[in-house]
Amino acid sequence: MKNLLTIIVLFCICHFAFGQGITPAPNENSGRTNGTTYITHKNGKLAKAGKYDSNGKETGEWKFYTLNEDLESIGYYENGQKHGEWKDFYANGKTLKTGNYENGKRTGEWKTYNQNGELASVEKYIDGKQIGKTELYNQQGKSTTQKALDNEMKDLMTAEFQEFCTSLQQKDFDQAVDFISEDFLNATRFSKDQMKNMLQSNFDNWEILPDLNVVLKKIETEKPKKIIKQANKLYGVLAATMHFEMTVTGNFTKKEIAETVSIIEIIGKDRYKIGEISQTEQTTVIQLTDKRLVAAIYDEASQTVRFAMAEMGLQYSFKEFLPKEIVEEMKPQL
């Protein structure tokens, strides 16, 4: 009994145990060259560059850079306030957003573009306040609605999660780990290699559980009920039901199997469900379903979807990088 419990309980505890970095403030010990001030991030890379007037206020053109020194935006100041044309850029240098400021406030049309260069949205401002509704466009540059865009995003998140699950089924763990959210890894302090090993131990019958073989047979996925936007990211919560076949090597009695099954269901807190159980002299095959809530995160800059599985005890970590509404939706499993 002890051996069987050890094998099954270890699987249930570790299964899918997935384990925003803080952007450093600029280092104001900056340098100056020909009147231009260069300010760096704490990592020593350029954060922004521009000029100050005789009163110590920003003036003229300023350029801003990411931690990787990719150009993030170019804009103009007058008397320390944003004034004139501003442009934001994707990491690959393509234009993300354009518009104008007047005395520190947005004015006129502000346009946002997709990575393919197509217009994504148009907003109109007067004295810093938006007037009218945002005009929205799909990836093909055609006018659309927020509901239609949300539905497109829900479809994309679902399709990408199926790709992730397919890589697990095929035991392609190098590809699978690329689907895991970097924000999630940072919050839980897992390295990418550690996550890859964890996925492999769960799905590749690793040496940690030599008497257990687990096969992911099928995945059923429900689309997110809603999409939440925060900064340049879109979030949704998928409900996934994973169907596993667990084969345990060893001669166990029906009583031992029944007691072990009851413990699995207690550990799973209604998440694990036991299906058909079949036995021969040396093997026991257990059908098990595992219901999971999955945070899907779409990054507009990279146009990719990444995932984080809900796990008991990780609520604190999830709060570090997920909107409150998403954490609240996932709370039953956190």
Rank of each mutant, 00 (worst) to 15 (best):
L288M: 15
G21V: 15
F18Q: 15
I266S: 11
N43R: 01
A187H: 00
G128K: 00
L156R: 06
N27W: 06
S201M: 05
T221A: 14
L10Y: 11
L334Y: 07
F164D: 02
E311V: 15
E72L: 08
G268N: 04
A240V: 08
D70V: 03
F318C: 09
Q194G: 03
E325F: 05
N202A: 05
K2V: 10
E163M: 12
I326W: 03
N138P: 07
E163W: 06
T95S: 02
K97S: 13
G93L: 05
L199H: 03
K45A: 06
K218H: 09
Y90R: 00
T221E: 12
F161T: 00
Q115P: 10
Q175V: 15
F89T: 03
M1S: 15
L288H: 04
K331S: 10
K223H: 09
N186T: 14
K154E: 06
E28W: 14
K94G: 05
E28T: 14
K94F: 03
A47K: 03
Y101I: 01
A240D: 09
L314D: 10
E69T: 10
K319Y: 05
L10V: 12
F190H: 02
Q303I: 13
E152F: 02
E85N: 06
K319G: 03
Y113K: 04
P26T: 13
K273H: 12
K255G: 13
D183L: 02
G250N: 06
P26D: 14
E160W: 02
K124L: 03
V285G: 11
F252Y: 15
I264R: 08
K124C: 02
S302V: 06
K196W: 05
T158Y: 01
S143E: 14
I74W: 00
E102M: 09
E135F: 02
I267K: 07
Q162M: 10
Y298R: 12
K154T: 03
Y125W: 07
T241F: 07
Y38I: 12
T280S: 12
D183T: 07
A148E: 10
K133G: 11
T166I: 05
K97R: 09
D70M: 07
L334K: 07
L314N: 04
Q194V: 01
Q279R: 12
Y77K: 10
A187S: 13
S73F: 01
N100W: 02
W206C: 05
Q146R: 13
A159H: 04
D88K: 03
N79Q: 14
I180R: 00
E61C: 00
E85F: 08
D193A: 14
F190N: 07
F252H: 15
K154I: 02
I180Y: 02
S121W: 02
W110A: 11
